[in-house]
């Protein structure tokens, strides 16, 4: 079980958190409809994800804590977590 250091609450076990997927994925469509996406682009955005070996920026939500969204940089092989920050400061989705 991971130990995630929530910038608001401190170190907490993984079961307090929910996983939110790849934080580097950029919304096709601008995230507010300002950059229209083609059907193909949008389908890629919805359904295709890389499965990187190594460092990975990902969203986590502190579900049973402060309920804030976080961006954690985690090694997908060793599970080492390099940094955790508030999602409002990082992530490009």
């Amino acid at each position: 079980m991971l130990l995630i250091s929530c910038p608001f609450c401190g170190e907490r076990p993984e079961d307090e958190f929910g996983f939110g997927g790849d934080a580097s994925v950029r919304h096709q469509g601008g995230g507010d409809g300002t950059e229209p996406a083609s059907v193909e682009q949008y389908a890629d955005y919805l359904y295709l994800r890389d499965n990187p070996k190594g460092r990975h920026a990902e969203y986590w939500v502190h579900r049973y804590g402060c309920r804030r969204w976080l961006v954690a940089e985690r090694d997908t092989v060793t599970h080492e977590i390099f940094s955790v920050k508030s999602a409002s400061e990082g992530g490009t989705g």
């Binding site: 929910g18 939110g20 995230g31 507010d32 939500v61 309920r67 804030r68 969204w69 508030s86 992530g91």
Partner: peptide
């Protein structure tokens, strides 16, 4: 109730700051 709140906060915190 939980999932909607979580999703809306994600939108506000990551896309619509």
């Amino acid at each position: 109730a939980g999932a909607v709140y979580e999703w809306l906060t994600m939108l506000l915190e990551t896309r619509w700051r």
